[in-house]
Structures are given as C-alpha cells and as structure tokens.
Write a protein that binds this DNA or RNA. Structure first.
Length: 113
DNA sequence: TGCCTGACTTACA
DNA sequence: CTGTAAGCCAGGC
C-alpha cells in the first residue's frame, strides 16, 4: 500500500541515521592510543564521506561518561576546535602527543595516512 | 517553513 | 597566514 510504503521509508531513514551514528562511534573507538584522526576521515571511514560536520555534532552531544577517545579527533589542519580545548590538549599530552597552541602534528600522529 | 549556528573541509584570493 | 565562499548535517527558535 502507499501509506505503508511512506511509513516504511521514514522508518528506513531513521534507522540509517542511527546506523550512521553507530558507525561514527565505532570508527572513533578504533583510533589507537597516541594517534589522532580528522573529522573528515572519520566520516569517510564511517561510509558517509563529506559528513565531517555530522561527526563534530555527535562529539558535541557526547555524554560525559562516554568511553570514546573523543580527544583523538582534530580538524583537517591538526587544530583542536573543541570548545574545551584545554581538556583535549591535556589528554593528548598524556598520550605523548605534543599539541602546542591547540595544534598537533598530523605528520607524526595521524592515524593512517 | 525558513534562517542561523556549530568540536568541518576544500578551494581560492 | 587570513578571509571568503560553498557544501554538508542536525538543532534551536
């Protein structure tokens, strides 16, 4: 039926949205200790290329008790754009990832590439 | 419904 | 290196 198809489409879109979130979280969880990844690459690895901003949105709404290594995510230039850059920089330093002026060396610490 | 904003990115001046 | 512009997505008002 038509109404059923319509309902089914919405259902699929919602499920896809949920799957995308799970995919992003999964990728971030795989970033190894002492390494960092960019929002864009995370989106690509999560099979949703071009959705870097979506990744940032998820991290911004991440629960505080989350076990995800959110501090290992930086922008394409290796810069920390997290509003709470202090906490992120501190966490990275704890992993021996130098980040002066909220910037890390992707050349040295980028995961893959 | 439309417009603005934000933990983005790439391209170009 | 700084500023603009365009593209992308979700939320808030």
């Amino acid at each position: 039926m038509l109404s059923d198809k319509n309902h089914s489409d919405k259902h699929d879109l919602m499920n896809q949205s949920i799957e995308n979130r799970k995919a992003v979280w999964s990728v971030i969880a795989q970033i190894p200790y002492g390494k960092v990844a960019t929002y864009g690459q995370i989106a690509t690895l999560a099979e949703i290329p071009g959705h870097a901003r979506f990744v940032g949105h998820l991290l911004a709404n991440l629960p505080e008790d989350s076990s995800l290594p959110w501090h290992r995510v930086v922008n394409s230039g290796g810069r920390i754009t997290n509003p709470n850059s202090l906490a992120q920089a501190a966490r990275l330093e704890d992993e021996n990832v130098s980040c002066r002026d909220n910037r890390v060396s992707l050349k040295m610490h980028h995961w893959k590439l």
